[in-house]
Nucleic acid binder design. Structure first.
Length: 875
RNA sequence: GGUCUCGUAGCUCAGUUGGUUAGAGCGCAUGCUUCACAUGCAUGAGGUCCAGGGUUCGAGCCCCUGCGAGACCACCA
């Protein structure tokens, strides 16, 4: 098949992907003679749409896994998706609402049926989108957090923790979402500053003698107050401790207690204590053995303990309570107050801290080894600074509330015996009570936090708790790639879970990336409507262009901006690669190409091969360091700058020349370099490189670039010296071009180039190249500028003085000015170098290599200056 | 309140144990239908590396202070 003149990704991306898949290229086959390399894909939510963040995630992981696969590892990129308990349930409830239904209308069973239908409908959607991006995951191993395998792991993990006493049930203050009607973990609450009020309320003493003033931002909770606290050191209130207050709007009496928790400086120094509705108050209540009075229902309305406010919504009750306080003379004043309010990360309603009976994971014993693992470098964050974020969280983490009052998720494997009252926690569903043998067992109604199952992902997907072949071979995994936004939700929990359940850290490296922002640097969000659909970009520019644009210029941990122009320039690069390939193939058509080992290399050949070796080395080390942006820049610069702009142009005289051996050799080098370039680029832009590879001479669709070997640095082919001297030739070419341009000489006008040089042999060998690339009709040697005897412009390079006779185009004054400016610049350099070398400390303390380099430079500049002065004098 | 990041060309950003004349893409200017590519080629303009101090033979890079932008965690009712 002919290659089109313009790169058109739509012609082949789907076909190439299908080809890989049919050939089983994605499948990671266990091979004891090889080393595994494993990446667990962060499982996207089944509710999700692919967004730019996913695309970047995929681009990075796919680049790494393709690189490792080509390096000969058994590369497993494990895909899957997450049931996303609360997120999915919220969506399904919304959908039901549109049909005029509620969860309760369907019942648990009916609801779960819906959820599974939903899973089937949307679950595969993202994976299809990932295929479009070229993701080379092992789809045969695809997992789902609710599938049988993962569910078994969840059960195992829960029971193990329970039996070790690391999971407990108890009444604690938790974050309650009145909209989702479930408890949330601390991580699931997002805080945002809100303008509110600070109500100062008068609490009179029972004996009628005086009062205290308390301040609150949530007056409705006063109905649950069971004390007022003051600081024991507070002289103002010392005498009041132990006295009793009459709680306004109620008939209850509450004590004044002394507790260190109270800040004397803040507010009035008197704090109302509501143990059922505030985490700090809860602790105070425990210390003073206070009653816990919960005044709110699960839906955020006031309950029967709220007296005449029962049934009112929390905000309605707030309004009424404030009005009543005011009417009855209890309200002292109202201040404006900005405070941080917690919101549900799924539905964004204001969460209520509420006392509630929930299941918790005891964190301290789990956090300790997780911290130690990072300390001992068993797990490494890239970039390193995120380690601190991780420590900070681990060191301060509170017990993890894992029960959710939801239906979609892993049901808590605990049963309560109706006969003897025992609590039963089993790996297999019990049919009778193991304590009394009774049959009235009732399973806990709640499901687990969705992150409980995600935390097991690196091993649940590989078969844990079974010692499967996959588990033994691929676990622990190598690198986890994810955004900094889920370090707490997920990464930290995987680490302590892995250590606890498998005894191993689940991955060695954690590569953290940033967010993809919009062109103006704003977060992409639904509400702003500034999101860009990756699939639309793929449709327009191709997956390779999108992938490359998401990687170039991006360092680990940093945010990046998406922009069409960036994608366009990547597309332009790929088009360049495409056409360079076409050029090579057109010239190779029907020709016999000698083996690269049999070619007698020209200076240009050695130069490009040297550049290639450098590129191979640099790309490899940077990929190993997870510097994907640097690596892709190096590879693209090599292809565009060195290969296309220089080598292909240099190859033309040879390709169109008479010398058959030279022509064949050049062709061989072109193919050799191109093939290596395709391999270097393949991890970044897999589709187009694979497609081009099939068109290489001697290759066909059957040959697979994806599974070929990644190039290896060959020091014998580095040709350092030769490359350096060839750069002298390139400098002459650049100088001639610039001289012509400066003299307004039309490019079409061929000029004669005279060189005064000691490198005659080098120039002679590359005469054709110089002529071709600089637009010269001849390259001649001269003994001096004066010997040319015509009006010339001149220029000095490191290896030659260049003279171009330009007759009427030569403007002597302009030329003088130019030379003077050049001399001035060089003189500056000479001064700089001289200054450095005159510094005895520099000569004594700096590395010898550097000092020698400086001496060489000085010499070079002195030589150039001399030449320039000579030229100037000749005018 | 704590922790962290960023500040480099008009714009977006690289700059990897401190060491050539600080780079790239886009944009800009000039010229070019050079037989792979105008999604291109060539040439060029454009930088007190936020400010100030310190360490060092040497600082865009390390340390301190300040200014500006942002992120995360915690939170006083």
């Amino acid at each position: 098949m002919e290659m089109q003149k313009t790169y058109n990704p739509k012609d082949f991306e789907d076909r190439i992907y299908a080809g890989w898949e049919n050939a089983g290229c994605f499948r990671a086959e266990i091979d004891r003679d090889k080393v595994p390399f494993t990446i667990m894909m962060p499982p996207p939510n089944i509710t999700g749409q692919l967004h730019m963040g996913h695309a970047m995630d995929a681009a990075m992981q796919d680049t790494l896994i393709r690189f490792k696969r080509m390096q000969g590892y058994v590369a497993l990129w494990m895909p899957g998706y997450d049931h996303a308990s609360i997120a999915t349930e919220v969506k399904i409830v919304e959908k039901l609402a549109q049909e005029g239904l509620t969860k309760q209308d369907l019942g648990r069973k009916g609801f779960l049926k819906r959820a599974w239908e939903w899973t089937e409908k949307y679950g595969g959607r993202i994976t299809l989108q990932q295929r479009k991006l070229g993701a080379s995951c092992d789809w045969s191993r695809q997992a789902f957090t609710m599938d049988e395998k993962c569910s078994r792991a969840v059960r195992e993990a829960f029971v193990n923790l329970y039996r070790k006493g690391l999971i407990y049930r108890g009444d604690r203050i938790i974050n309650w979402c009145p909209c989702c009607k479930t408890a949330l973990s601390d991580a699931e609450v997002e805080y945002a500053e809100e303008a509110g009020h600070f109500w100062h309320i008068r609490y009179p003493f029972s004996d009628g003698k005086g009062e205290v003033i308390v301040a609150t931002t949530r007056p409705e909770t006063m109905l649950g107050d069971t004390a007022v606290a003051v600081n024991p050191a507070d002289e103002r209130y010392k005498a009041l401790v132990g006295k009793t207050l009459r709680l306004p709007l109620t008939d209850r009496e509450i004590p004044v207690v002394a507790d260190d928790y109270v800040d004397m400086e803040f507010g009035t120094g008197c704090v109302k204590i509501t143990p059922a509705h505030d985490p700090n108050d809860f602790e105070v209540g425990r210390r003073h053995d206070l009653e816990v009075i919960r005044v709110m229902n699960d839906d955020g309305s006031m309950n029967e303990r709220a007296g005449r406010y029962a049934g009112q919504d929390r905000y309605e009750a707030r309004k009424n309570i404030v009005a009543d306080l005011e009417a009855q003379g209890y309200l002292v004043k109202v201040e404006s107050h900005v405070h941080n309010v917690g919101h549900c990360y799924r539905c964004h309603s204001t969460v209520e801290p509420i006392v509630s009976k929930q299941w918790f994971v005891k964190m301290e014993p789990l956090a300790k080894p997780a911290i130690a693992a990072a300390m001992k470098n068993k797990v490494r964050f890239i970039p390193e600074r995120f380690t601190k974020v991780y420590y900070n969280w681990m060191e301060n983490v509170r017990d993890w509330c894992i029960s959710r009052q939801l239906w979609w998720g892993h049901r808590i494997p605990v049963w309560y015996c109706g006969d003897c009252g025992a609590t039963v926690c089993e790996k297999e569903d019990p049919s009778v009570c193991p304590v009394c043998g009774g049959t009235h067992l009732k399973q806990d109604e709640d499901v687990l936090d969705t992150w409980f199952s995600s935390a097991l992902w690196p091993f649940s997907t590989l078969g844990f708790p079974e010692e499967t072949e996959d588990y033994k071979y691929f676990y622990p995994t190598d690198v986890l790639v994810t955004g900094y936004d889920i370090i707490f939700f997920w990464v930290a929990r995987m680490i302590f879970s892995g250590l606890e359940h498998t005894g191993k850290v689940p991955f060695r490296d954690v590569l953290i990336h940033g967010l993809v922002r919009d062109e103006q640097g704003r977060k992409m969000s639904k509400s702003l409507g500034n999101g860009v659909d990756p699939l639309e970009v793929v449709e327009k520019y191709g997956a390779d262009s999108l992938r490359l644009s998401l990687l170039t210029g991006v360092g680990p941990g940093n945010d990046t901006r998406y922009s069409d122009t960036k994608v366009e320039s990547c597309r332009n690069f790929i088009n360049k690669l495409w056409n360079a390939s076409r050029f090579v193939f057109m010239n190779a058509e029907g020709k016999k190409i000698p083996d690269i080992g049999d070619v007698h290399f020209s200076p240009a050949d050695k130069w490009i091969i040297s550049c290639l070796q450098n590129c191979i080395r640099e790309v490899t080390t940077n990929l190993n360091k997870y510097e994907l942006g640097v690596a892709s820049d190096l590879a693209t610069d090599f292809v565009w700058g060195d290969f296309c702009d220089w080598y292909i142009e240099l190859s033309k005289p040879a390709l169109y020349g008479e010398d058959e051996e030279k022509r064949a050799g050049t062709l061989s080098v072109l193919c050799f370099v191109l093939e290596n370039a395709l391999k270097l680029l393949h991890p970044f832009i897999p589709f187009v490189t694979e497609e081009i590879y099939h068109h290489m001479p001697g290759k066909s669709e059957k040959d697979c670039l994806m599974t070929s070997a990644f190039p290896r640095y060959n020091s014998k082919a580095a040709y350092k010296k030769e490359a350096k001297s060839f750069e002298g030739v390139m400098e002459i070419i650049k100088a001639v071009r610039a001289m012509k341009k400066a003299a307004d000489c039309p490019p079409s006008r061929k000029v004669e180039v005279y060189l005064v040089t000691d490198s005659k042999r080098l120039v002679q060998l590359n005469k054709d190249s110089i002529m071709k690339l600089s637009g010269a009709s001849a390259v001649k040697f001269a003994e001096s500028g004066a010997a040319i005897g015509e009006k010339t412009v001149s220029q000095a390079t490191e290896i030659a003085q260049i003279y171009i006779p330009l007759g009427e185009l030569v403007d002597i004054e302009k030329e003088k000015a130019r030379l003077s400016a050049e001399i001035e610049r060089i003189s500056g350099e000479i001064e700089r170098a001289k200054g450095k070398l005159a510094n005895r400390d520099f000569v004594a303390k700096a590395p010898k290599k550097l000092v020698d380099g400086e001496r060489e430079k000085l010499e070079k500049y002195l030589g150039m200056k001399e030449k320039l002065e000579e030229q100037l004098a000749g005018l």
